[in-house]
Amino acid sequence: MSADAKIVGSAAVVALLRRDVLRFVRQPSRIVAAIGTSVMLWVVLGSGFAGSFAPAMAVDSASEGETYRAYLIPGVAVAVVVFSSVFGAIGLIDDRRDGFLQAQLVSPTPMWATIGARVVSSSALAWVQALPVLLAALVIGVPGGAAGLVGAAAGMLLIAVGMSGLSLAAAWRINSVQGFHGVMNLVLMPMWLLSGAFFPVEGASPWLRTVMMVNPLTWGTECVRSSLRGAESGQGAGWMWMGAAGFAAATLALCAGVMKRP
């Protein structure tokens, strides 16, 4: 890569990040939705499903003594990250429709900068929107302490990068928001529901447990949960971290493979 391309690319990444941040703060509905979604999920699911998942919680040795509301916090954080990442990818479809993407593609901005800016802004905004959920963890009490919070934030960042990469790669190939939502509902909803966000993997039936264990979102969710609980309570947490990081790297590679100029 030439020095010129690096300079053009770096300046473009900064400018595109600034643009996405401006877009975000100028749409108050997105901020309200991000906070509202997490509060609603935590309060409603935490109150309404506590009894339903009690047997599954009892089977899970790691969640021993933990309330369902406390158990749910990583799941809610992951939900916010996942759905905010999808919003970031919808921005790509909007940009294509509005002509902004075409203007970007016919400019000398290198593709790595276009992809990098999209992934960074989408994942950073998704991550920031999920951070308030960690405040709820503070209220409940975090066995993992400050290190646990940092670890959880890192886990959420890996999920944000992975889901942003996956969503952007899909959005690159899909021309309509409706079509994109269809695909995302087909892929992301099952991924989220079967990530251990709602109920422990250990409480699931054997076949479902297998499905959940190969779900990349389970790895990220487990990173967040094990961090909040404290490292010693995590079962195979190291493998989960490697899996989550590998998934994020794989989706970046997918973006690089899919998002190309004509």
Binding site: R19, D98, A103
Partner: peptide, 12 residues
């Protein structure tokens, strides 16, 4: 290039 759909961000 001036495209049929202006390549401008409406929120900016």
């Amino acid at each position: 290039v001036v495209f049929q759909s202006p390549g401008l961000d409406a929120l900016l």
